[in-house]
């Protein structure tokens, strides 16, 4: 885990506000390290979304724009179309991307926008207090599915990586997880690959990262990581769903 705690110039010194054991912080660090290692911090504009990561603009050490709930891919499109030689990424949760903003996300992918989306799937709405997300698992109890998500009532969880991979404009789509060190290393490789895809001008890239929410899951940090492994992995299988041919080294 040593690498995880090394300082990266991709993050400002501002301490993050995430709950203890929340993997949002780790995912920030992975993105920041990739930007630092590719030496593109000065060429990057990030787009913060609405969710627990709303303040990510205080953490990433690059120019940042704050978008309305769900609209980050549209905002990123606007930036990228004006500045095609800059790196543009969004950082979005599952409520933001898969619920209110699914239209913007799908169309950005369909257009093959040369941007990178970091999609944090924690199977719940964190910021607003643990309500059901489109990625909430069947049987999972949330503030708005008190008896557990019921397919007949609330439908089935949306599998974003699989969905996005069906779009011709998508160049690289991969699902990774932040629940243990080997997976975190893989996650970083995937994020690197996404930015390399953007660098090569190949089009849309999205990395779905399975993430924890100890606070709203009501589990300890360790239990939360275990919960990802036990419950999320079977429903959200990890892997590359669409492979751009760029070679990424991490």
């Amino acid at each position: 885990m040593k690498t995880v705690f090394e300082k990266t110039s991709g993050l400002k010194d501002t301490p993050t506000h995430y709950c203890p054991g929340c993997t949002h912080g780790i995912i920030h660090r992975l993105v920041a390290e990739v930007l630092e290692e590719m030496d593109i911090l000065e060429d990057t504009v990030g787009v913060a979304s609405v969710g627990c990561s709303v303040l990510s603009y205080d953490y990433f050490n690059c120019d940042m724009t704050q978008a309305a709930h769900g609209r980050a891919p549209a905002v990123a499109t606007g930036i990228k179309r004006v500045l095609p030689d800059r790196f543009v990424f969004t950082y979005q949760g599952d409520g933001d991307l898969a619920s209110i903003g699914i239209g913007e996300a799908i169309h950005a992918a369909a257009r093959g926008e040369n941007i990178t989306i970091i999609f944090v799937n924690n199977a719940i709405y964190g910021m607003t207090g643990g309500q059901m997300a489109p990625t909430t698992l069947i049987g999972q109890k949330t503030a708005t599915s008190p008896d557990g998500r019921n397919a007949a009532l609330q439908g089935m969880p949306i599998k974003v990586a699989e969905l996005m991979a069906t779009l011709d404009g998508a160049a690289h789509i991969e699902r990774v997880s932040a629940h243990d060190v080997p997976n975190i290393i893989k996650a970083k490789k995937a994020i690197r690959k996404a930015f390399e895809t953007q660098k090569a001008g190949l089009g849309f890239s999205l990395i779905e990262v399975l993430s924890s929410c100890p606070t709203n899951w009501g589990l300890s940090p360790t239990e939360s990581l275990e919960w990802i492994k036990e419950n999320m992995l079977p429903i959200f299988p990890l892997g590359v769903y669409k492979n751009s041919s760029v070679g990424g080294k991490a």
Binding site: V45, A67, R71, A74, V75, G78
Partner: peptide, 13 residues
């Protein structure tokens, strides 16, 4: 909705 948010992104540049 997407259009106005694209405007927002572009305007920021």
């Amino acid at each position: 909705i997407a259009a106005i948010n694209m405007v927002y992104g572009a305007a920021g540049t």
